[in-house]
C-alpha cells in the first residue's frame, strides 16, 4: 500500500531499491547473529553471576506472586531476615501489572547459613475503597543444604473481601 509515488517516479528506482534491500539484508543478518551470540553470552554471564554471588548451598531466593489483585494495589514490599532489613522494593505500575497477569518477581537473593531463620515481610499499597493498606506477614524457615525458594503471595479473599498475604516455601 505504499505506492505514494507516482508510477513515473517508481520506474527507475526498482534496481536501486533491490540493491539497497540486499545491503540492508546483509547487515541485518550480522545483527541477527550478534543478537543470538549476545543473548547466549548473557545467559552464561547470568548463570556465572548467580553461582558466584549465591552458591547453591547457601542460596535463598524470595519471590513475589499475586493472584487477581482486585482488593490490593501493590506499592512496595520490604523484607527483614533475622531482624535485618534486606530489601525494600517500590513497584512501578508496569511491574505491578505484570504480577497481576501471572509474572513472578524475584525480590531478593540471599546467602544464609543452614538452620532456622525468620522472615518478616511488610506489604504496602491500597486496599478496598482505595484505603492505604500496610500488612505484615512472618514465617520461620529452615535452611538446609541446597537452594531454597520462598514465596510471598498476595491473594484475594473473596469471602472477607480483603487481600491476604501469605509467606510459604515454594512447593
Amino acid at each position: 500500500m505504499d505506492s505514494d509515488a507516482a508510477p513515473a517516479e517508481a520506474y527507475g528506482a526498482a534496481a536501486q531499491e533491490a540493491a539497497s534491500r540486499d545491503q540492508f539484508r546483509a547487515i541485518d543478518q550480522d545483527v541477527q547473529s550478534l543478537k543470538k551470540e549476545v543473548l547466549d553470552l548473557n545467559r552464561d554471564l547470568f548463570l556465572l553471576e548467580e553461582e558466584l554471588l549465591f552458591p547453591a548451598n547457601s542460596q535463598v531466593a524470595f519471590f513475589v506472586s499475586m493472584d487477581v489483585g482486585e482488593y490490593f494495589d501493590l506499592d512496595s514490599i520490604s523484607i527483614k531476615i533475622d531482624g535485618k532489613e534486606v530489601a525494600n522494593y517500590l513497584y512501578t505500575e508496569r511491574e505491578a501489572d505484570a504480577l497481576i497477569r501471572g509474572g513472578v518477581h524475584r525480590l531478593h537473593m540471599a546467602n544464609l547459613k543452614t538452620g532456622e531463620h525468620e522472615l518478616i515481610a511488610v506489604f504496602i499499597g491500597h486496599g478496598p475503597n482505595v484505603r492505604e493498606y500496610r500488612r505484615g506477614a512472618t514465617m520461620s524457615f529452615d535452611k538446609g543444604i541446597g537452594a531454597k525458594y520462598v514465596e510471598l503471595e498476595i491473594t484475594d479473599s473473596i469471602t472477607a473481601q480483603q487481600p491476604e498475604f501469605v509467606i510459604k516455601e515454594w512447593e
Binding site: D40, F46, D97, A98, G102
Partner: peptide, 25 residues
C-alpha cells in the same frame, strides 16, 4: 517453577531481552 514465572514477569513488561536471557538460563 518460579523461574518460569520470572520470565513471564519480564515478558509482560515487554522487556524481551531480560526475559529471553532468564528463560535461556
Amino acid at each position: 517453577e518460579p523461574q518460569y514465572g520470572e520470565v513471564l514477569y519480564y515478558f509482560y513488561q515487554e522487556d524481551y531481552f531480560p526475559a529471553i536471557v532468564r528463560l535461556l538460563a
